[in-house]
Amino acid sequence: MTGTDDAIAIDVDDRERSLYRVLSSLIVPRPIGWVSSHSPDGVDNLAPYSFVTVASVEPPVVLFAPVNGPDGLKDTPRNVRATGEFVLNLVTEELAEAMNETSATLPPGESEFDHADLERADSSVVDVPRVAGATAALECTRRELIDVGGSTLVLGDVRYVHLDESVTTDGRVDVGEVDAIGRLAGSQYTRTDDRFSLERPP
Protein backbone atom coordinates (compact mmCIF):
# COMPACT_ATOMS: atom_id res chain seq x y z
CA MET A 1 0.00 0.00 0.00
CA THR A 2 1.40 3.40 -0.98
CA GLY A 3 0.20 6.87 -0.24
CA THR A 4 0.64 10.58 -0.85
CA ASP A 5 -0.58 13.53 1.19
CA ASP A 6 -4.19 12.90 0.21
CA ALA A 7 -4.41 9.43 -1.29
CA ILE A 8 -3.81 5.77 -0.62
CA ALA A 9 -3.13 3.35 -3.42
CA ILE A 10 -3.45 -0.42 -3.07
CA ASP A 11 -1.80 -2.74 -5.54
CA VAL A 12 -3.74 -5.95 -5.00
CA ASP A 13 -0.92 -8.09 -6.43
CA ASP A 14 1.46 -6.74 -3.78
CA ARG A 15 -0.97 -6.93 -0.87
CA GLU A 16 -0.68 -9.89 1.50
CA ARG A 17 -3.82 -9.25 3.55
CA SER A 18 -7.40 -9.73 2.44
CA LEU A 19 -9.32 -6.82 0.89
CA TYR A 20 -12.40 -7.75 2.94
CA ARG A 21 -12.40 -4.60 5.08
CA VAL A 22 -11.72 -2.31 2.11
CA LEU A 23 -14.45 -3.82 -0.06
CA SER A 24 -17.02 -4.11 2.74
CA SER A 25 -16.39 -0.47 3.69
CA LEU A 26 -16.72 0.88 0.14
CA ILE A 27 -19.54 -1.24 -1.31
CA VAL A 28 -22.18 0.26 0.98
CA PRO A 29 -24.89 0.09 2.02
CA ARG A 30 -25.51 -3.59 1.38
CA PRO A 31 -28.81 -5.43 1.90
CA ILE A 32 -28.80 -8.21 4.44
CA GLY A 33 -29.87 -11.64 3.30
CA TRP A 34 -31.15 -13.44 6.39
CA VAL A 35 -31.06 -16.97 5.08
CA SER A 36 -32.88 -19.86 6.68
CA SER A 37 -31.99 -23.39 5.66
CA HIS A 38 -32.48 -26.94 6.88
CA SER A 39 -29.71 -29.47 7.44
CA PRO A 40 -30.03 -33.11 6.35
CA ASP A 41 -30.01 -33.92 10.09
CA GLY A 42 -33.11 -31.82 10.68
CA VAL A 43 -31.55 -28.69 12.21
CA ASP A 44 -33.03 -25.32 11.20
CA ASN A 45 -30.23 -22.89 10.40
CA LEU A 46 -30.55 -19.09 10.20
CA ALA A 47 -27.68 -16.76 9.33
CA PRO A 48 -27.24 -13.21 7.97
CA TYR A 49 -25.17 -12.46 4.88
CA SER A 50 -24.43 -9.03 3.41
CA PHE A 51 -23.06 -10.07 0.04
CA VAL A 52 -26.53 -10.52 -1.48
CA THR A 53 -28.44 -9.23 -4.49
CA VAL A 54 -30.85 -10.01 -7.33
CA ALA A 55 -29.17 -11.93 -10.15
CA SER A 56 -32.09 -12.07 -12.59
CA VAL A 57 -35.72 -11.01 -12.79
CA GLU A 58 -36.80 -13.37 -15.58
CA PRO A 59 -36.51 -15.97 -14.24
CA PRO A 60 -36.42 -14.50 -10.72
CA VAL A 61 -33.06 -15.45 -9.20
CA VAL A 62 -31.35 -14.16 -6.08
CA LEU A 63 -27.84 -14.80 -4.87
CA PHE A 64 -25.81 -14.57 -1.72
CA ALA A 65 -22.10 -15.18 -1.35
CA PRO A 66 -20.85 -16.57 1.97
CA VAL A 67 -17.14 -16.26 2.64
CA ASN A 68 -15.90 -19.78 3.40
CA GLY A 69 -14.89 -20.66 6.94
CA PRO A 70 -11.60 -22.22 8.06
CA ASP A 71 -13.00 -25.68 7.31
CA GLY A 72 -14.60 -24.79 3.98
CA LEU A 73 -18.31 -24.27 3.40
CA LYS A 74 -20.35 -22.73 6.18
CA ASP A 75 -23.56 -24.37 7.37
CA THR A 76 -25.90 -22.42 5.09
CA PRO A 77 -24.31 -23.17 1.71
CA ARG A 78 -23.67 -26.74 2.86
CA ASN A 79 -27.36 -27.12 3.69
CA VAL A 80 -28.45 -25.58 0.38
CA ARG A 81 -26.13 -27.92 -1.51
CA ALA A 82 -27.56 -30.92 0.35
CA THR A 83 -31.28 -30.06 0.39
CA GLY A 84 -31.66 -27.66 -2.54
CA GLU A 85 -33.76 -25.14 -0.60
CA PHE A 86 -33.53 -21.91 1.39
CA VAL A 87 -35.56 -18.84 2.37
CA LEU A 88 -34.35 -15.24 2.13
CA ASN A 89 -35.95 -13.24 4.97
CA LEU A 90 -36.12 -9.43 5.04
CA VAL A 91 -34.35 -7.75 7.97
CA THR A 92 -36.13 -4.67 9.30
CA GLU A 93 -35.10 -2.57 12.28
CA GLU A 94 -37.30 -4.37 14.77
CA LEU A 95 -35.52 -7.61 13.88
CA ALA A 96 -31.99 -6.18 13.91
CA GLU A 97 -31.05 -7.43 17.38
CA ALA A 98 -32.35 -10.91 16.64
CA MET A 99 -30.53 -10.94 13.30
CA ASN A 100 -27.31 -10.05 15.09
CA GLU A 101 -27.87 -12.88 17.57
CA THR A 102 -28.09 -15.36 14.70
CA SER A 103 -24.57 -14.42 13.58
CA ALA A 104 -23.16 -16.14 16.68
CA THR A 105 -20.98 -19.19 16.18
CA LEU A 106 -23.01 -22.10 17.52
CA PRO A 107 -22.08 -25.75 17.98
CA PRO A 108 -23.35 -28.23 15.40
CA GLY A 109 -26.90 -29.30 16.06
CA GLU A 110 -28.02 -26.02 17.69
CA SER A 111 -30.50 -23.87 15.80
CA GLU A 112 -30.12 -20.10 15.52
CA PHE A 113 -33.92 -19.84 15.59
CA ASP A 114 -33.87 -21.20 19.12
CA HIS A 115 -30.73 -19.31 20.14
CA ALA A 116 -32.34 -15.98 19.18
CA ASP A 117 -35.79 -17.02 20.44
CA LEU A 118 -37.34 -16.53 17.01
CA GLU A 119 -40.66 -17.99 15.98
CA ARG A 120 -40.71 -20.16 12.87
CA ALA A 121 -43.38 -19.91 10.18
CA ASP A 122 -44.14 -22.65 7.69
CA SER A 123 -43.16 -22.08 4.10
CA SER A 124 -45.46 -22.90 1.20
CA VAL A 125 -43.33 -24.72 -1.37
CA VAL A 126 -40.04 -25.50 0.39
CA ASP A 127 -39.35 -27.57 3.49
CA VAL A 128 -37.51 -24.73 5.24
CA PRO A 129 -39.04 -22.47 7.90
CA ARG A 130 -39.10 -18.71 7.48
CA VAL A 131 -38.87 -16.06 10.19
CA ALA A 132 -42.41 -15.47 11.43
CA GLY A 133 -41.77 -11.80 12.19
CA ALA A 134 -40.25 -10.94 8.82
CA THR A 135 -42.46 -8.67 6.70
CA ALA A 136 -41.20 -10.32 3.51
CA ALA A 137 -39.64 -13.67 2.65
CA LEU A 138 -38.57 -15.36 -0.58
CA GLU A 139 -38.78 -19.13 -0.78
CA CYS A 140 -36.04 -20.40 -3.09
CA THR A 141 -34.76 -23.58 -4.64
CA ARG A 142 -31.11 -24.13 -5.49
CA ARG A 143 -30.08 -23.14 -9.00
CA GLU A 144 -26.31 -23.38 -8.68
CA LEU A 145 -23.37 -23.06 -6.30
CA ILE A 146 -20.25 -21.49 -7.78
CA ASP A 147 -16.87 -21.38 -6.08
CA VAL A 148 -15.23 -17.97 -6.45
CA GLY A 149 -11.91 -17.82 -4.64
CA GLY A 150 -12.59 -18.09 -0.93
CA SER A 151 -16.34 -17.60 -1.30
CA THR A 152 -19.28 -19.58 -2.66
CA LEU A 153 -21.97 -17.92 -4.75
CA VAL A 154 -25.35 -19.47 -3.98
CA LEU A 155 -27.96 -18.80 -6.64
CA GLY A 156 -31.59 -19.62 -5.98
CA ASP A 157 -34.75 -19.53 -8.05
CA VAL A 158 -37.49 -17.59 -6.26
CA ARG A 159 -40.49 -19.90 -6.07
CA TYR A 160 -42.84 -18.17 -3.63
CA VAL A 161 -43.06 -14.67 -2.10
CA HIS A 162 -44.55 -13.78 1.29
CA LEU A 163 -45.50 -10.13 1.87
CA ASP A 164 -47.03 -8.63 4.97
CA GLU A 165 -49.73 -6.04 4.30
CA SER A 166 -47.58 -3.46 6.10
CA VAL A 167 -45.15 -3.33 3.15
CA THR A 168 -47.82 -2.97 0.47
CA THR A 169 -50.08 -0.22 -0.85
CA ASP A 170 -53.00 -1.07 -3.14
CA GLY A 171 -51.73 -4.64 -3.44
CA ARG A 172 -48.22 -3.72 -4.57
CA VAL A 173 -44.91 -3.55 -2.72
CA ASP A 174 -44.39 0.00 -1.47
CA VAL A 175 -40.66 0.67 -1.10
CA GLY A 176 -41.52 3.55 1.21
CA GLU A 177 -42.85 0.99 3.69
CA VAL A 178 -39.97 -1.49 3.37
CA ASP A 179 -37.95 -0.30 6.33
CA ALA A 180 -35.01 -2.59 5.73
CA ILE A 181 -31.66 -2.05 7.38
CA GLY A 182 -28.40 -2.20 5.48
CA ARG A 183 -24.91 -3.35 6.36
CA LEU A 184 -21.94 -1.00 6.35
CA ALA A 185 -18.69 -2.35 7.82
CA GLY A 186 -17.72 -3.93 11.11
CA SER A 187 -20.55 -3.43 13.59
CA GLN A 188 -22.16 -0.54 11.69
CA TYR A 189 -25.57 -0.63 10.01
CA THR A 190 -27.82 1.94 8.36
CA ARG A 191 -31.54 2.62 8.06
CA THR A 192 -33.43 3.27 4.83
CA ASP A 193 -35.70 6.02 6.16
CA ASP A 194 -33.65 8.94 4.78
CA ARG A 195 -34.52 8.89 1.09
CA PHE A 196 -34.57 11.16 -1.92
CA SER A 197 -35.73 10.86 -5.52
CA LEU A 198 -34.10 11.57 -8.87
CA GLU A 199 -35.95 11.40 -12.15
CA ARG A 200 -34.16 9.22 -14.66
CA PRO A 201 -33.33 11.14 -17.85
CA PRO A 202 -34.94 10.02 -21.13
Rank of each mutant, 00 (worst) to 15 (best):
P59C: 09
V61G: 06
F64P: 02
A65C: 15
A65G: 15
A65D: 12
P66C: 07
T76S: 07
P77T: 09
P77M: 12
N79Y: 04
V80D: 01
V80R: 01
T83E: 06
E85A: 08
F86E: 01
N89A: 05
L90P: 01
V91T: 09
T92L: 03
E94R: 10
A98Y: 08
N100M: 10
N100C: 11
S103M: 05
T105A: 14
T105W: 12
P107T: 13
P107V: 05
P108K: 11
E110D: 07
E110C: 06
E110V: 12
E112R: 03
A116W: 06
A116M: 13
L118K: 00
R120D: 08
A121P: 00
S123M: 10
S124M: 13
V125L: 15
V126C: 02
P129E: 01
R130E: 02
G133A: 11
A134F: 03
A136I: 05
A136R: 05
A137Y: 00
L138N: 06
L138Q: 07
E139N: 12
T141C: 10
R142L: 14
E144N: 04
D147H: 06
D147L: 10
D147I: 13
G149V: 09
G150V: 11
S151R: 10
V154M: 02
V154N: 01
L155Y: 09
R159L: 06
